[in-house]
């Protein structure tokens, strides 16, 4: 316990706050890597005209399986 508080003083960060910062950074990286993959997935089941016009972001627009079948 003593060692923990000591290290906390030296960094100016407690173990907990450094954990939170790490998780936030990793979540941002996770989002950057995963979003293009997700985008390809929803673009494949959307209306192609909406994809070209840039209207497809978070959910497939006008769901269709024409691109897959």
């Amino acid at each position: 316990m003593k060692a923990n508080t000591k290290s906390g003083k030296l960094t100016g960060l407690s173990e907990k706050s450094s954990d939170i910062i790490l998780v936030v950074i990793c979540t941002i990286i996770l989002f950057i890597v995963a979003y293009p993959l997700y985008y390809v997935l929803i673009a494949s089941v959307s209306n192609p005209y909406d994809v070209y016009a840039g209207k497809t972001f978070l959910l497939p627009s006008q769901f269709t399986l024409d691109g897959i079948t």
Partner: peptide, 15 residues
Amino acid sequence: MIRIFLSPSGGLINL
């Protein structure tokens, strides 16, 4: 994918 994302009309980066 790069072409879609960078497309001048409706590409994500341009939006």
